[in-house]
Amino acid sequence: MSLSNDELKHLAQLARLRIEDGELDGYRDKIGAVIEYVDQLRELDTRGVPEIASAGGGSAFGENGAGEINAFRDDVVADCPEDVRARLLAAFPRRAGDLLEVQAVFENRDE
């Protein structure tokens, strides 16, 4: 299938990407060519075939190719080394000391 510019704009909105109007045609054509190529998958008969669950190694593959694996651990608080903590905080774009600032998700509708 092909993609219209309106559909592309919608995808960009979903993906939180801004695309300038002048660039829409270029993105549409290049992404459209890939969608046309992957359309060949729809012609394959996959009735009764499970979706692959894991490509993990060893016995995790299972006998029929669609292996399953779950890995659990106890929910234990682990210490963070001070230098790691300092670098994590330093990476924040907006901060004052250890006060980390992010933008409001909800806006006050009364204003």
Partner: peptide
């Protein structure tokens, strides 16, 4: 697309 590709992936693994 997505779910079909994951099935094809099983076929490739097999």
């Amino acid at each position: 697309y997505y779910r079909q590709a994951m099935k094809v992936r099983t076929l490739i693994k097999r």
